[in-house]
Every structure is written in C-alpha cells, then in structure tokens.
Design a protein around this nucleic acid. Structure first.
Lengths: 213, 213
DNA sequence: ACCTGAACACCGTTCAAGT
DNA sequence: ACCTGAACACCGTTCAAGT
C-alpha cells in the first residue's frame, strides 16, 4: 500500500536513474540464474556464496551488494517459482473458463502445472526446501494460500463441494497430492513419467468427482 | 581406585564383552534420543554437533567415538523411521489378512501408518530431508522399495490391478500421496487433522477402487 | 559508486593429550 | 579404554580499503 517515493522525481531523474536500476536489475537476474544453475548441479546443500560469486566471476562482497544474504537469493528464486505456478493456474482458468467438465479440467490442470515442474526442474531442490527451511517457510505458506484462492472459484464453477470452506480443503488436498507426485515424476524417465502423469490426472479426476454435487 | 574389570583376554563365548557393547549401545541410543529431541526443537538446519554434545553433557569428540560423522546420526535415526513404518505395515498386513474389502483396508492403512507419523512427528524434518540430502537419499530409496514390496501382496489379495508391475506403480502412488498428506496433517490442529485423515482414507479408497478388477 | 578480499564468527571434524 | 577440547578447514557475512 506504500506509494512510491521515487515517482515525484521520476521525470527529472528518470533518464539518469533508469540505466543504473536496469543494470542493477540485470545483475540480480544474473545472480539468480547462476544460483538456479548451480542448484541443479551441486544441490541445495552444496550451494555456497563463494561458488555463486566464482560462477559469475565477481567477489563475494559484490554478491552482498545485491542481496542482503544467501537466503535472500533463494527467497527471490522461490518468488519466481510462485509466479510461474500462478501463471500456470491463470492459464488453466482461462482455458477451462467455459466448460464444467471435471475430467477435462483435471487433464488441463495436470498439463499446465506439470509444465511448470518440468521447466523449473532445476530448482525443485529449493522448492522442497521451502517447507523445511524456516526462512523460506513464508513462501510455502503463500503458495498454499494463493493456489487455494485460485482453485476455489474454479471448483465453484464446476459445482464441486457445497461450501467454500470445503472447497478450500479439497484445493489443499489437490495441491499436496499433485506436488508430491510431480516432484517424484520429475525424476522418472520419459516413458514412466508419461504413465505417472496419466495416473495423476486420473487421481485428480476421482478426487474432484467425489465432491461433485 | 582402579578396578580390574578389564579382561585383556576374551573368553571363547565372549560373555564379558556384552556389558561393554551394551553400554556402547546405550550411549548410541542416548545420542539418537537427544538428536531427535533437538531436531524437534531447533529444526534440521539448527542442529549442530556441539548442541547434541552439550545436550548430553559430553564433548564433541566423544560424539565421534560413537558415530563417524553427523550424517551417520541422522542416518541411524532414519533407519529407525523405516523400521517403525515397516512395523506398521506388518500390523496392517496382520489385521487385514482375512478380508478383501478395499475400504476397510484403506481405513486400517491410514490408521496404522498415521500413528507412525504422529508418534515420530518430531523427526519429520529429517524424513523430509531424506529426499533432499544426498547422504540420506538411500534411506528414501529403500523406504520406497520396502513399502512397495509390502503393499504389492496385499493389493494382490484384494484383487487390485492385473499385474505386479501395475501394483508396484499403484503402491508408489499410494506412498507419495499419503506421505505428502500425512506430513501436512501433522501440523494441523486436532479437529482439522481428524477431517483430513478421513479425506485421506477416502482418497485411498478411491485410488484403489479404480484399479480393482 | 561500485567492487574487492582479508577478517570474523561459527560450523563439522580431527587428534594429541589427559584420566 | 574412553573422553577432552584446542586446532583445522570451510562456511556465511562484514567492512575498511581500493578503483
């Protein structure tokens, strides 16, 4: 709710400030990309600030110019995960807006959300850690919240459950269930992953069908 | 003050060895108990060897007399989790031996396995880490294997699926699904947890019913 | 203004020295 | 035989000093 304090000076300093901010934003992105890259290669525990700095050819101190601490880098990466996930749900909402077929919804949901898990496969160690590491725990909570609030209206449209509190509970179930399976699926080979994804779609369908009214 | 309780030459039967081993085993258990206790209080990341040593009133070096490294303590604790889980499945097998009712099986499974999650609630941070930490990963793999091999015969008896490879796949699905939900449930308050457990029972039933032949 | 890297506190682990 | 705790390598983080 805080109005930007920079707005008043934007006209005057805009041209001078933008490049600096742009460069800064770019560096931040570079750090995030390098971290995501290393996360995939050395794992959550193997990740060190020295390693990230070396990967970018800068000093550790420089890293701390852009992020207050290591967790902040991981946190920003987690934010990105939330955004991608939310974008997938928005696409799902869009794609299933004018049908109430539960089975089709389940298929679309598994496809769209599954794509996120595939594309972000490298940072899954981080996503898993979100639950366990206290400093990242808020991401997990927000993720839950956001997903539930996006699913409830869709469930409503599909006439699933008779109250919103029930829909919230089912949305949570759906989230936990699909998350556990997508993470496992991300480590399976192509053929098995394909079958597992079909199983999951089916499981989603059955879950929702049960509460269909 | 020196007592001649040290027998330099051991007898054939080794009857004198037992007390020493017994004492050693006891210390190991104490270390495990203290670690489990701290895990619950300070979390997976907050756990340090110094802290464990302090908790027991011994030195760090002494810790390394009983375990080669920190991960070995956690590993041993993980082994215990596997044992408890397997014991629950054995009880489940025993309790459902002479019926083929899928719904009853689902109820019993959620009850017995759920008890393990409740009793071992303190070490759930560790169980979660088993997946992410490379040194503990073998526990996760063995857990998967053991659970699947215990479930397949039960599925067979209940006439679920038409081949063992299918049963293995369903067992894996069951494991991932219930694990994700049990972990989440362990953090809910009593009333909500009760409802969630019923939802889970229902979900299990529907999962198995689908493949019932 | 931005970057550097030695310095600091703290971790897991070791091992010479005590009892 | 068993235990101790200073010492070591390495982590995240800081900050005086460079450009």
């Amino acid at each position: 709710m805080v109005e930007s304090r920079i707005d008043s000076r934007k006209k005057k300093l805009g041209s001078k400030r933008a490049p600096v901010q742009e460069r800064s934003r770019q560096r931040r992105d570079e750090i995030l990309a390098a971290t995501a890259n290393l996360l995939d290669r050395v794992g959550f525990d193997g990740l060190t600030t020295t390693l990230v700095a070396k990967e970018l050819g800068i000093s550790v101190g420089s890293l701390y110019h852009y992020f207050p601490h290591k967790q902040a880098i991981l946190h920003a990466l987690g934010e990105r995960w939330l955004e991608e996930y939310n974008a997938a749900l928005a696409k799902l909402e869009e794609a299933t807006r004018d049908n109430t077929d539960i089975e089709k919804w389940a298929a679309a949901a598994v496809r769209y959300v599954g794509e996120v898990y595939e594309e972000q496969r490298g940072i899954l160690p981080l996503v898993q850690a979100m639950y366990a590491v206290p400093e990242l725990r808020d991401l997990d909570d927000r993720h839950d919240e956001q997903v539930v609030s996006q699913l409830v209206p869709m469930f409503d449209r599909m006439k699933i459950a008779k109250s919103n509190s029930e829909r919230e509970r089912i949305a949570w179930l759906w989230l936990e269930m699909t998350h556990a399976l997508f993470v496992s699926i991300s480590e399976q080979d192509g053929a098995r992953a394909k079958r597992s994804r079909e199983d999951l779609k089916d499981l989603c369908f059955r879950l929702l069908e049960k509460w269909s009214v």
